[in-house]
Simulated assay, not measured.
Amino acid sequence: MNTVKLIATAAMGLEAIVADEVRALGYTNVKVENGKIIFDADPSGIARANLWLRTADRVKLLVGEFKATSFEELFEQTKALPWADYISKDAEFPVIGKSVKSTLYSVPDCQAIVKKAVVESLKKRHKIEWFEEEGALQRIEVAILKDLVTLTIDTSGTGLHKRGYRYLHNEAPLKETLAAAMIKLTNWTPDRTFVDPFCGSGTIPIEAAMIGQNIAPGINREFAFENWEWFKQEWTDRALEEAEDLAKYDQPLQILGTDIDHKMIELASNNAIEAGFPDQITFKQMQVKDFTTRDEYGVVVGNPPYGERMQEKNYVENLYRELGRTFRPLDTWSAYFITSYEHFEKLYGAKATKKRKLYNGNIRTDFYQYWGKRPPRK
């Protein structure tokens, strides 16, 4: 097996960022589609992609793709794929599915047929009649879009946003993948001050620290592929060694996370310690209006309350006015805020330099970008 075709799934609006990350890993045959980035890699790329992709949701191994409008076509073409190359005879291989705008619209039926076809394919190669499924998890997905069937095996296990450092969080946590994407959309470099005025459980500051020190986001967690029989330990070891070599643990950081709630400050501090940043991030209980700085250049990234509930509306509107009064005068700083509140610019008191549509879970939001003056070139 010299090459594999991989799919990095992405939240709507983040595809271009994920594609840039894939290319940064050195993969050139990259195809971008809605919600996914398809690319070729050698098998060790499974480990590298899972370790390094900050903004992707999962990495899937593409087994096959074909058109099917009948259950018979689905069965026969699934059965013809080389499942035994990837799935060991003791593996656990459940099938999940989805179907959109397709002739084969019954997802439970499609799942059952794919399962049966995979079993028949494995029987032929493994020379056994019954599969106990007590070994490593190799979850299969059948996804049908406009009659095009895509069959994949999930290499990640739990989603890539589960970095392993956030055991506790607030009621409405921002996914680590979205936090990383927001930071990547800024002009921040680790030699500048970074501030999150609504740090909550600390996700944005921690992701900034990981980016600032070039630490692979998956370095402290496990993945499904690590237990696969055919996946060589040396591929994982090589990817981990590369991640350690590229990390810049000595890179100084000036990162501040503030929140009005002292419980959130305690929670964020504990999460930062868990992530390996006991001293690199400062957390402080503070109201937005009390923020001051002597630093000439900096970047603010915030996920303020959106005012989704009617009783919060007045509080949120006043908060957005305070944001403007606090950060607008810092003309050499850049500020970035994500919110679903459509009149944010009016309350902030300035039109954004740029606005980008993003989804925070199922909530459609805008990412308001206010670019400050650039530092002089050194």
Score class of each variant (00 low, 15 high):
residue 6 L to V: 06
residue 17 I to W: 00
residue 18 V to W: 01
residue 20 D to C: 09
residue 21 E to H: 06
residue 23 R to Y: 04
residue 32 V to R: 03
residue 33 E to Q: 11
residue 36 K to I: 06
residue 38 I to W: 05
residue 40 D to Y: 06
residue 47 A to S: 15
residue 52 W to K: 11
residue 74 L to Y: 01
residue 75 F to C: 01
residue 83 W to T: 08
residue 87 I to W: 02
residue 89 K to Q: 13
residue 96 I to N: 10
residue 114 V to M: 04
residue 118 V to W: 06
residue 122 L to R: 04
residue 122 L to W: 07
residue 131 F to T: 06
residue 143 A to S: 11
residue 153 I to R: 04
residue 157 G to N: 04
residue 163 R to M: 10
residue 164 G to S: 09
residue 170 N to Y: 05
residue 175 K to Q: 12
residue 177 T to A: 09
residue 178 L to P: 06
residue 189 T to G: 12
residue 195 V to W: 09
residue 197 P to I: 01
residue 200 G to I: 01
residue 204 I to V: 07
residue 225 F to Y: 14
residue 227 N to L: 11
residue 230 W to T: 13
residue 230 W to I: 13
residue 231 F to E: 03
residue 237 D to N: 13
residue 254 Q to C: 13
residue 258 T to F: 07
residue 266 E to K: 12
residue 278 P to R: 02
residue 279 D to E: 15
residue 282 T to W: 05
residue 282 T to G: 06
residue 284 K to W: 05
residue 289 K to L: 08
residue 290 D to T: 08
residue 296 E to A: 11
residue 309 R to A: 11
residue 310 M to I: 10
residue 315 Y to A: 15
residue 324 G to F: 05
residue 338 I to F: 02
residue 341 Y to M: 14
residue 343 H to N: 13
residue 363 I to P: 02
residue 371 W to N: 10
